[in-house]
Structures are given as structure tokens and as C-alpha cells.
């Protein structure tokens, strides 16, 4: 394994850690809002690290660009949906 690959694997594992943590938080946290908090970590950082690791492994410019694009849209979508769900939960009294 080249040093680059080792680095990539390390980054991927860090990303995985965020996903595991996000899922655990999703299961363990007591209400919608704190669960939302757990979720956004996985979305933003977890996926960013996975995308970075994948980009390092493939080492291809077009793939890297596509990975960035995917990450960007997932973050955008999750920020928007997080906001919308939180607002909905607040208004409809589903918060607790």
C-alpha cells in the first residue's frame, strides 16, 4: 500500500466514524432537535471525509469534481431539509 492509500484509508475511517456517531446519536438522543444535531455531523463531515478518501483513491480530476459536486448538493439538501423538518417539528408540536 502506498502512503497515499494509507492516508486515504485513514480519512475514510474517520468519515465512517462520523456516520457511526451520527447513527448512534440518531438512536440515543431524546428528541427531534438533538437528533437533528447528530444527523448534520454525519451529513457534512462524514460525507466530506468519505468523498475526500474516494477522491484520493481514484486520483482522477473529473471524479474528484463530481465527488465535490455530490457532497455540495448533499450538504445543501441536508441543511435545507434539516431546517424545514425542525421548523415543522416546532410548529406542529412534534418536538418532544
Amino acid at each position: 500500500m502506498t502512503p497515499l492509500e494509507i492516508l486515504a484509508i485513514g480519512i475514510l475511517f474517520a468519515g465512517l466514524g462520523f456516520f457511526v456517531a451520527g447513527t448512534v446519536g440518531m438512536l440515543r438522543f431524546p428528541d427531534v432537535f438533538s437528533r437533528l444535531h447528530a444527523l448534520t455531523k454525519a451529513d457534512n463531515l462524514g460525507l466530506a471525509l468519505i468523498a475526500l478518501g474516494t477522491a484520493l483513491l481514484t486520483a482522477d480530476t473529473s471524479v474528484t469534481l463530481k465527488l465535490m459536486l455530490i457532497w455540495f448538493f448533499v450538504v445543501l439538501a441536508s441543511a435545507t431539509s434539516g431546517h424545514l423538518i425542525a421548523r415543522h417539528a416546532l410548529r406542529s408540536g412534534q418536538g418532544s
Partner: peptide
């Protein structure tokens, strides 16, 4: 809201 939130996480995963 919980269910939707979980679905969102599953989509990202």
C-alpha cells in the same frame, strides 16, 4: 419528523 430525519440520514449514507 423523526422518521423523515432518519430517512434523510439513510439517503446520505
Amino acid at each position: 419528523a423523526d422518521r423523515m430525519l432518519a430517512a434523510q440520514l439513510l439517503g446520505t449514507t
